[in-house]
């Protein structure tokens, strides 16, 4: 068990080293002739107006809230799905009722008109 995650950890390290090596090689052999115009922010040739780290209106934050509910719920659903073969019909129906409650939440959000892009 521990060995498996050690392998994933090694993969993480090696997976980071390979692209990093490509960047380093490119950094060594590529020409470096910076100038202010070249390094200015690209905006289709326009001068940038004001700050670049601007604040946007995140229209989808309600979606993100709904997503949060569904994402947490799947943590409960995965063990249920794995054990489904051994469960009785009663437990299966219980799981289905659980999903139905979640869908009721989605329907409520929908009826409230929150699933519209504003």
């Amino acid at each position: 068990m521990q060995n498996e995650w050690l392998y994933v950890g090694l993969f993480l390290v090696v997976g980071a080293i390979i692209p990093a090596a490509a960047i380093i090689v490119s950094w060594i052999i590529s020409p470096k002739k910076p100038n202010p115009i070249k390094q200015s922010t690209y905006e289709c040739g326009m001068e940038t107006v004001g700050e670049n780290w601007v604040q946007f209106k995140a229209q989808y934050y309600i979606f993100a809230l709904v997503f949060l509910v569904f994402d947490v719920e799947t943590v409960f659903l995965f063990p249920w799905a794995v054990a489904l073969g051994k469960l009785s019909l009663f437990a299966v129906i219980e799981g289905i009722i659980f999903i139905l409650i979640l869908i009721a939440g989605l329907v409520y959000t929908w009826r409230k008109g929150m699933l519209e892009w504003v």
Binding site: P19, S30, K38
Partner: peptide, 24 residues
């Protein structure tokens, strides 16, 4: 590999270089 690497002004260099690595 032999293209010039341009880092824009005001970029957060550490995150800027880390992003393509993490992508792969």
């Amino acid at each position: 590999l032999i293209k010039e690497d341009i880092t824009p002004d005001g970029a957060d260099r550490v995150v800027y270089n880390l992003a393509p690595i993490m992508s792969l």
